[in-house]
Write a protein that binds this DNA or RNA. Structure first.
Lengths: 344, 344
DNA sequence: TTACGCATTTAAAGCGATTTCAATCCTAAT
DNA sequence: ATTAGGATTGAAATCGCTTTAAATGCGTAA
């Protein structure tokens, strides 16, 4: 299909290309109403579709947002299979599309920074999920791009952050178990890195324990990776080596599902024998059996909020300092995997 | 960060910008080895990063692929929450990145075609999932873009297709139930449109029935939407109104999970009371309880195959007529939701 | 009538590549 | 020594749009 250019539009409308550009970009005040009408008419009649490459080249605005997702351990595939990320992406895409932006979804290759991509594509901004090495963020800053971080506790006012209060979540989850009479509650978590999401939840876990006057037993925390498989493994170990444990707080729903499966393999059933609480409330949480009790966050909402904030930052760019992190709410949703422990 | 242009590289290397462009694009044969070396050196030292907008404008190649995902009923969100699509995307992204392409992931707005996006962004190709109105495809053809269709049986040799033999899948699933002694097997499916995926599976279902000398009972097919929720509803109805049904073939794993849940709600358990078989083998299929017996397709593989074929089509473009559809293999994976029916 | 100021409009200069095509350089053949 | 012919090179045109800066038109004050 032949491309209609701004020049053809300008000729048809009987004005200059500059005028057309002004109208197209809503630079009202620069042109008379009469011109606006003529141009609009010509655009419609010709079926003009702007070329964003040219626009990006000339104007330095691409209407493209980079969205980075973490990858599987083997670094071959996106972690999009994890519903947490796919739901985030849903939220992001919907909001971006609404404003005429497009999203380039990708992972980042081992070692490679994201700098290349962002410069090649003249990105207008980026949303980064997952946690990376220091140098990755340094690169990002060099490009002077508005950036929103999701699940990161990086201390750097350059970045916008849209998160949840993970410490509170950990606390809420653990407290719920304790409130149900459990005193031996395990934590199954991904690796606890300083200032990471996992650490915060871990801190919440300990706070709840302490508040209830419970002893914090390091043997009760199972730390490795946040995956279904590890949850399963932890579940088996708990069933076999720790019959005293009656409740477990799994740091994500995926892990919780694994724990339940591992437990079941070893003959211990949820919630009859052991109570389990998850985190996130991904959509399968209410589809599985038994439906999972969990700490709910509105993941899709968090995604659109991230997009929202990014768009905000892009428009009133002019180096306005990022405000405080946006903190999305967390709520406990009770389903069927936690049962009151009645003293025998 | 200041942008280094091809001009600066050319100055540093002491050659023309044309030479630099040749080297950058691997047009060897156009330049001497000496020039190549000089340019490479300058590129490295300067840390040159090409501007794809400019490249796209001048050369008509953007290295951008459009990937379209269907949306939820309310048309507000991507159907990315459906593991089938997210796994496809994983496969696609991995393959594209490997060749230096990026992917613009989006849904398409009600009514709006995809024509705008593809022209605006100078896409090099597109991968379309889901089924749309005729006009959507017509638009696509106008742009003369290489296009790969996933889950579509459109009769049009313009499009490349990467699919599976859905009829066979339906047959295999149904036959497996019959082989296990079931004679009253229901089908729970999305709406059966002519030449759609659902119709093929339906056809396979009927073939298996016929082959086994079984009567095809329209009351046994539950047709609405392919979603967990509908599965659940169908499960309830089966439990309450059709106690004679002992097995169900659900047209996707998501639906199967719903059926199991609906059945359970009404007190009928899988596989003790009813056998269920799904389709796809999404990752949760083996994580849920009981693990789902299903017809497996390598979804991620299908995604990368789609990308592969698209890249192929892009390189040897020159209007080479699309070959036959690529048909990916299907296998039955037996897990715990199908049980042999022993005559009482 | 002339001049001035403001609102519009437009010609033209980029933006950073690719690509055409004429110019230049070699090498080998006459 | 000349010259034909192939291999390299590089100046300049282009791609489609934004934006600057200069030009134009028009109403009003001097």
């Amino acid at each position: 299909m032949k491309r209609i250019t701004i020049r053809e539009v300008s000729e048809k409308a009987g004005v200059s290309t500059a005028a057309v550009s002004y109208v197209l970009n809503g630079r009202i005040g620069k042109v008379s109403q009469e011109t606006v009408d003529k141009v609009r008419k010509a655009v419609d009649e010709l079926g003009y579709i702007p070329d964003f490459s040219a626009r990006s080249l000339a104007g330095n605005r691409s209407k493209l947002i980079g969205v980075v997702i973490p990858q599987t351990e083997d670094r071959k595939q996106l972690l999009l299979q994890n519903p947490f990320y796919s739901e985030l992406v849903c939220g992001i895409e919907a909001r971006l599309r609404q404003s005429g932006y497009h999203m380039i979804l990708s992972g980042v290759d081992k070692g490679e920074g994201y700098l290349d991509t962002s410069m090649q594509r003249n990105l207008d901004g980026a949303i980064i999920m997952g946690i990376y090495q220091e140098s990755f963020y340094e690169d990002l800053k060099k490009v002077r791009l508005p950036i929103v971080l999701i699940d990161s506790y990086i201390h750097d006012s350059y970045f916008h952050v849209v998160g949840v209060d993970d410490e509170l979540g950990g606390y809420l989850a653990t407290k719920h178990l304790i409130d149900n009479g459990h005193t031996a509650v395990a934590l199954v978590t991904g690796s606890i890195r300083k200032d990471g999401v996992m650490e915060k939840r871990f801190l919440g876990y300990k706070r709840a324990l302490k508040e209830a006057g419970l002893f914090y037993n390091p043997d009760y925390v199972f730390e490795d990776s946040v995956s279904y498989e590890y949850g399963q493994e932890a579940g088996r170990v708990i069933a076999e080596k720790h019959p005293d444990i009656t409740a477990v707080f799994a740091v994500s729903d995926m892990v919780a599902l694994g724990v339940i499966s591992g437990l079941a393999e070893a003959g211990r059933h949820v919630p009859d024998d052991v109570s389990v609480i998850g985190f996130d409330d991904i959509s399968v949480a209410r589809m599985c059996h038994p439906p999972l009790t969990t700490i709910r966050q509105d993941i899709v909402g968090r995604g659109s909020m991230a997009a929202e904030r990014l768009l905000q930052a892009i428009t009133d760019s002019e180096e306005s300092l990022p405000q405080e992190p946006t903190v999305m709410p967390l709520t406990l949703v009770q389903r069927d995997t936690v049962r009151r422990l009645t003293p025998e």
